[in-house]
C-alpha cells in the first residue's frame, strides 16, 4: 500500500480510536456510504449462499412436474416454481453459490496470474516484449468469443466456465500492473533501491508490487462483477454453465421464455444477480475513493 494511503488510514484510525465502536462505524458509513452499502449487501448475499441448505426449505433439484409447474409466488413457493415445478427460491439461493464462486474465483485467479505476469513483464525487460505480445494476442481475441471457444474445448462444467472467463481477464490485469510498474520503476526511490544494490525480487516485491495494490483491488471487483455477468451472458447464448447446474445465469436463460407468462422465474435470479453485481461495483467504487489513486501518483 502506498505510504500516503497508509498515512491516511493511520490518521483515520488515530482519530477513530478516541471514539466508541458504534460511533466509528457510523463515521465510516457516513464517509463511505457506497462502500458500506456494498459491503453490507455482499455480506448478506454471502451469508445466504453459505447457509443456503438451512435457509431454503426445499431441495433445489426436486422436481414436481405433474402438479407443481409454473406456480406463482405463494406460501409454498416463495418465489414461485419453474417449468419443472422446482422451487425458484431454493434455486436462487443455491444459484448464488455458483455465481459467487464463479465471480470470486475468476477475480482471484485473474488478479494473481495477471499480477505475476505484469510484474515480470514490467520489470524484467528481456521478457517484456515476449510476454506482452502473448498477452496482446490473448487480449486481441474478443473475451466472450474466447470464453465460448474454451467452453467448447473443455468438458462442460463450472470449472470450465471459470477457466474460460479467467483467461481473457489475465492480459487486462497484466497490462494494468505492467503500466504501474513501468511508471514506478522510473521513480526516484526505486532507482535508489536498485542503485543501493537491492535484488530484483526484493525490488519487485518490496518496492514495486505495493504500488499495484490499489488499482488491483479496484480491478478485482470489476473482474468479479463482469465475470458474474459474463456467466449469465454465456448461459443465455447456450454456451456457458451447463443448464443442469442452477446458477443465476442458467436460471435466467431458462426463464427468459416465460418473461411475460411466469415473470418470477427470470425476475428473482435477475434481481439477485443485479444486486450482487451492483454491490460489488459499489465496493469497487468505494475502495477507489478510499485508496485514492492520486496518492499513488504523488509518491
Amino acid at each position: 500500500m502506498s505510504t500516503a494511503a497508509v498515512n491516511e488510514m493511520e490518521f483515520e484510525s488515530a482519530e477513530a480510536a478516541v471514539l466508541p465502536l458504534h460511533r466509528r462505524i457510523v463515521e465510516f458509513v457516513r464517509r463511505n456510504p457506497n462502500l458500506s452499502l456494498g459491503l453490507l449487501m455482499v455480506a448478506i448475499i454471502i451469508f445466504v449462499a453459505i447457509f443456503a441448505p438451512w435457509i431454503a426449505a426445499k431441495d433445489p433439484a426436486e422436481l414436481n412436474v405433474v402438479t407443481g409447474r409454473l406456480k406463482p409466488p405463494s406460501e409454498e413457493y416463495w418465489f414461485g416454481s419453474d417449468r419443472f415445478g422446482r422451487d425458484v427460491f431454493a434455486r436462487a439461493i443455491f444459484g448464488g453459490r455458483i455465481s459467487l464462486t464463479v465471480g470470486i474465483t475468476v477475480a482471484a485467479l485473474a488478479v494473481f496470474i495477471g499480477l505475476m505476469v505484469g510484474l515480470l513483464s514490467g520489470y524484467v525487460r528481456q521478457i517484456d516484449a515476449w510476454l506482452m505480445r502473448i498477452m496482446d494476442g490473448l487480449m486481441a481475441i474478443p473475451g466472450l468469443l474466447l470464453a465460448i471457444g474454451f467452453i467448447a474445448l473443455l468438458p462442460a462444467g463450472i470449472e470450465t466456465v471459470i477457466i474460460a472467463l479467467t483467461i481473457p481477464e489475465i492480459p487486462r490485469v497484466a497490462r494494468l500492473v505492467r503500466g504501474v510498474v513501468v511508471v514506478t520503476r522510473e521513480i526516484t526511490y526505486v532507482e535508489a533501491a536498485v542503485a543501493a544494490g537491492a535484488g530484483t525480487a526484493r525490488v519487485i516485491f518490496k518496492h514495486i508490487m505495493p504500488n499495484t495494490f490499489a488499482p488491483l483491488i479496484v480491478q478485482a471487483t470489476f473482474v468479479c462483477a463482469s465475470a458474474m455477468l459474463s456467466e449469465a451472458a454465456l448461459s443465455f447464448l447456450g454456451a456457458g454453465t451447463p443448464p443442469e447446474i442452477p446458477s443465476w445465469g442458467t436460471m435466467m436463460a431458462d426463464g427468459r421464455s416465460y418473461l411475460s407468462s411466469a415473470t418470477w422465474i427470470i425476475l428473482f435470479p435477475g434481481l439477485f444477480l443485479a444486486a450482487t453485481v451492483l454491490s460489488v461495483n459499489l465496493i469497487g467504487d468505494g475502495l477507489r475513493d478510499l485508496l485514492d489513486p492520486r496518492f499513488a501518483k504523488e509518491v
Binding site: 457506497n34 451472458a233 435466467m252 427470470i266 443485479a274
Partner: peptide
C-alpha cells in the same frame, strides 16, 4: 453525484440480454 453514479453502476450491473428482453416486451 450519487444519483448519477448509482445510475451508472446500475447500467453496469444488469445483464444485457435481460434488459433487452424487458425493452422488447
Amino acid at each position: 453525484d450519487h444519483a448519477i453514479m448509482i445510475f451508472a453502476v446500475l447500467g453496469f450491473s444488469v445483464p444485457g440480454f435481460w434488459l433487452g428482453f424487458m425493452f422488447v416486451s
